[in-house]
Design a protein around this nucleic acid. Structure first.
Length: 432
RNA sequence: GUGGGCGUAGCUCAGCUGGUUAGAGCGCCGCGCUGUGGCCGCGGAGGUCACGGGUUCAAGUCCCGCCGUCCACCCCA
């Protein structure tokens, strides 16, 4: 006697998306794809894993993501690879490798992997969609990238979103700011929270978005990035915010907005949902990364982009109660074919309908008519086509309106040769 | 990585201070209606009470471990 094999389940922090909820995914990704094309972006697909250096040099070896969250492994050829923890680095690596003409406008949708302790809205595999523009430092591009994200959120029905923007300045402004921040923090070390009192010098910028009161007091009294910007960077930032204002995208400046990846220069931004609480309220973010292409071994090339987490967007939609799954499901099937003669008729009728552009489904296993009609009801189909021995004999089909209420006038016998036209007509009238 | 809550049917959950064959609603299958869904009535299938140890005459219930999940921190999407 062998034991029953142990049931296997999805790994910690991962999840299956089944047809009920995947309708919402299709809608999000479909909408984004359409909008990205409207904005002039082309789809880019890059490998899910890369040489680990792509991410170490990209997001910074000092960042938490690179230090302790990456899935790093060695393949059979001894190469050290990593599953992608975010979207941007791979796209920029592809740009550097292929040197397309600029400006290069790319959009993507991809899973991202981080070894984290899972909780609501945070997974070991999550999914991001986003865009990148390489080859121009024109502030209008920053505006376009932010605007695309904003309009996308509007289109899918999110209303409680706030956009926060900031500028880190270019490499020199940023470096000068880090120096003055460092000296401020070192003089205030004893006033920082327990953790940052020890760790501030590794990455002083991290202290800026610490939520502890002690750190906030120290930070508020210290230098502001806003004052550290050179004239060019200040002007660049003003063009970005003026551009947003010009097209009616509301923004607020947040001088403490310091994002987790080291590659950001100048513009940074983040979208938060007020419908989600605290910890996981960021639904998207991004910024400019004018050094990144060079860091990955390419020619100096400016870039800017944003990424948004699909799971977070769905949580935010749910929190705003903007998701209507029922409606999405109703849209699926036009016709359900009921065949009590063995199934051969349903095979041919479904094929005919599908070739003519209808969404058709049927039952299997030779069930009773009653049971098949029950399945028809569940499918959400507008109409059912019934074929039993009588119809088969007479070369006819019974068409039944599954939504009508007057029992006397809801089904009729039609010649099989007229099927496609009759179905088309029935669907048109039942749509009204 | 640190701290806490929770794991009982496919789903949502009940199960009092340990005590016979572990329940409900929804869903699923069937019958009432032997060719007609949705509503209603009746019936049925489905559980090693997450898993592994321990205490006890007796554990879903108490203890320990483990895994999973949720929450907070951290970080982020």
């Amino acid at each position: 006697m062998s034991e029953q094999p142990k049931q296997l389940v999805a790994p910690t922090g991962t999840h299956d998306v089944l047809p009920d909820s995947s309708r919402a995914w299709e809608r999000l990704v479909g909408t984004f794809s359409e909008m990205a094309h409207q904005w002039g972006f082309g789809l880019v697909l890059t490998p899910m894993f890369e040489d680990v250096a792509v991410f170490n040099r990209g997001i910074g070896e000092e960042s938490d993501v690179a230090r302790k969250e990456m899935y790093v492994f060695e393949d059979r050829g001894g190469r050290t690879l990593a599953l992608r923890p975010e979207g941007t680095a791979s796209v920029v690596r592809a740009f550097v490798q292929h040197q397309p003409t600029t400006p290069w406008k790319a959009w993507y949708v991809t899973p991202a992997f981080r070894y984290e302790r899972p909780q609501a809205g945070r997974y070991r595999q999550h999914h991001q969609l986003g865009v990148e523009v390489l080859g121009t430092e024109d502030p209008f591009v920053d505006v376009e990238v932010i605007a695309l994200a904003w309009r996308f959120f509007e289109t899918i029905g999110l209303s409680q979103i706030r956009l926060m923007v900031n500028s880190m300045g270019h490499a020199e402004c940023r470096e000068a700011f880090v120096v003055s921040l460092r000296s401020h923090l070192s003089s205030q070390e004893s006033n920082l929270c327990d953790e940052h009192a020890k760790s501030w010098s590794g990455n002083p910028l991290r202290v800026i978005d610490c939520k502890k009161r002690e750190c906030r007091t120290v930070v508020d009294a210290g230098p502001s990035i806003a004052d550290a910007l050179c004239e060019e960077c200040a002007t660049h930032f003003k063009h970005v915010t003026d551009g947003l204002t010009a097209i009616g995208v509301p923004w607020e400046r947040n001088v403490k907005l310091v994002r987790g990846f080291d590659y950001y220069t100048r513009t940074t931004f983040e979208f938060v949902s007020d419908a989600l609480d605290g910890a996981q309220n960021a639904v998207g973010g991004g910024g400019r990364y004018d050094q990144l292409a060079e860091d990955l071994g390419g020619k100096p090339t400016a870039g800017v982009g944003f990424g948004s987490g699909i799971e977070r967007l769905l949580l935010a939609l749910q929190a705003e109660d903007s998701l209507r799954f029922e409606k999405l499901r109703d849209a699926s099937i036009d016709v359900f074919v009921v065949d009590t003669t063995g199934g051969q008729e349903a095979l041919q009728i479904c094929d005919l309908l599908r070739r003519n552009g209808f969404a058709a489904d049927r039952a299997f296993d030779g069930r009773s008519m009653k049971s098949q009609l029950k399945a028809a009801d569940r499918s959400g189909a507008r109409i059912a086509l019934l074929v039993g021995p009588q119809e088969l004999e007479a070369g006819t089909i019974t068409i039944r309106d599954l939504r009508a209420t007057d029992e006397g006038n809801r089904q009729k016998l039609v010649p099989r040769s007229e099927l496609v036209n009759v179905v088309r007509e029935a669907i048109e009238t039942s749509m009204n």
